[in-house]
């Protein structure tokens, strides 16, 4: 069953006086539990696809349906609710809230969802333990390494029980060993919790981990490869 359905998405930007066609009609279906990499060189449109699927950017034309919700029918407020409950984000630069500790960053999403304080604490600690951050609950982002921050970001993304997790070049700022360990962890979550992961990347290691690679070039899908199991 398709968890993400994008149909003929087009997007253009104006950069100064130049019109840039970021997406020229991208259509893609992603099923529940897939581990997909959107690959391609810089400027190919992979981050734009992720942003549009995540509902933080609007396509000029085409439609996006995530877990049965058609974005074109939704208000900004409804989109915010959808992002909160159905979509998890992992950014290249981790983007944790700097004034909150690791535990509070993870709890914050549940706070927005209305989860009780006791439940939040229990769940946040359990998930931080799962990503290998036992005992580092009260550390602020500035007191964690890049790899540890990205693990907190993954914990934050997964704690809300989302339908999909969108990860924009999650390993770009990490050394290969840390990146590999992070991908192992994501793969484990994908396998054990059946969470759908969609990456944007040009890192070969990520592509090796992916079960499916959607290659983009100049705003169009060049090829869509599903690896053999």
């Amino acid at each position: 069953m398709s968890i993400v359905r994008a149909e003929n998405i087009k997007k253009r930007y104006i950069q100064g006086k130049v019109e840039v066609h970021a997406l020229r009609g991208v259509s893609v279906n992603i099923d529940q539990g897939e581990f997909v990499a959107m690959a391609g060189p810089s400027g190919s449109g992979k981050t734009t696809v992720l942003n549009i699927i995540g509902g933080i950017d609007n396509p000029d034309s085409g439609q996006v349906i995530v877990d049965g919700n058609n974005y074109s029918d939704m208000t900004q407020s409804k989109l915010a609710e959808l992002r909160l409950n159905k979509i998890g984000f992992v950014f290249q630069a981790y983007n944790l809230i700097p004034v909150l500790s690791a535990e509070e960053n993870v709890e914050y999403i549940m706070l927005l969802q209305g989860v009780s304080a006791k439940e939040r604490k229990k769940k946040a600690r359990a998930i931080l333990d799962d990503v290998g951050l036992e005992g580092k609950y009260s550390r602020r982002p500035s007191e964690l390494s890049g790899g540890q921050q990205q693990r907190v970001a993954v914990a934050r993304a997964i704690v809300s029980n989302p339908a999909i997790i969108l990860a924009d070049e999650p390993t770009a700022n990490l050394d290969s060993k840390t990146g590999e360990s992070l991908l192992d962890m994501m793969k484990k979550m994908n396998r054990e919790k059946d969470v759908t992961f969609i990456f944007s990347t040009h890192d070969n290691m990520v592509m090796e981990y992916a079960k499916r690679i959607v290659k983009l070039k100049d705003g169009q899908i060049e090829n869509d490869i599903i690896k053999d199991k």
Binding site: I56, Q76, A80, L82, R83, L84, I87, F89, I109, L112
Partner: peptide, 16 residues
């Protein structure tokens, strides 16, 4: 600004 953008992406409503 970037931090606010991330918070909005995570599902924080503008009013909050």
């Amino acid at each position: 600004t970037k931090e606010f953008g991330v918070m909005l992406a995570l599902g924080v409503k503008p009013n909050r």
